[in-house]
Design a protein around this nucleic acid. Structure first.
Lengths: 118, 118
DNA sequence: CTAGAACCTGACACGGGTGTCAGAATCAAG
DNA sequence: CTTGATTCTGACACCCGTGTCAGGTTCTAG
């Protein structure tokens, strides 16, 4: 599929998809004229990338991580190095802290909302 | 206490504390010479502000929200307007989505970490 | 062949909380 | 009074994924 369709199906802008490619996050074939041509598995991959961005990982970390993930079209093509495992473990801890904070903030909002309703 | 101590006790930079004041998030008395003097309750408040920032709320929302929260030194001094309740409800939903995404990303990381360890 | 839709690259701007620096004033202790 | 630590204000820069515009090329249907 081409970039417009991929954008539509993932909800990610064309701008971002091109950015992902430049960062090495998302590969694409090219038509003779230079237009990007994506495989079906790109949809899953883009969704994953979005999730990881939302989780606060930066492009460079995701670049290392992606080949170690099992993708829509097959198993992982690499295993994480010890260095990467350490990094990911730290990211995992950060995510846990983030979740804790989010839940606390959600409780705060609930209190205010409930107080206004009651 | 003064700004240096508050920064030390909350782990938030002096720069940010001044920014919070300018945004109307954090009040401070002034010494005759113009130095900020914070009440003890400021510590709790700064922590709350940080949590809400981390939860993705912007200053202007937090400004509206703060007076409706029960603070370290007393009950809420205001009740949320219907408009604010609607906004906060939307924020709450956003937080829920964020938590869901974070947990999914955490699972992804766990998979990669486990694969490398196993 | 042609019109219009889709796509290309490159560049500039944004948001918004934070880092940092400069130059000046204040505070507290000797 | 003096000195050194602390604080003051204001301004500029950063991050980094994303929006957007410009000017040009490719694709596809009629």
């Amino acid at each position: 599929m081409r970039i417009g369709e991929l954008a539509r199906r993932t909800g990610v802008s064309e701008r971002s998809l091109r950015y992902y490619e430049k960062q090495g996050l998302l590969a694409a074939e090219r038509t003779p004229g230079g237009h990007r041509e994506y495989a079906e598995a790109a949809v899953d991959r883009v969704v994953r990338i979005q999730e990881l961005f939302a989780a606060g990982l930066c492009s460079s970390k995701i670049v290392e991580l992606l080949p170690c993930m099992r993708d829509g079209d097959g198993g992982p093509s690499a295993v994480a190095t010890p260095k990467l495992v350490a990094d990911l473990t730290a990211e995992r801890a950060r995510i846990d802290r983030m979740v804790t904070d989010l839940l606390r903030s959600r409780d705060t909002l609930d209190e205010v909302i409930d107080a206004a309703r009651g």
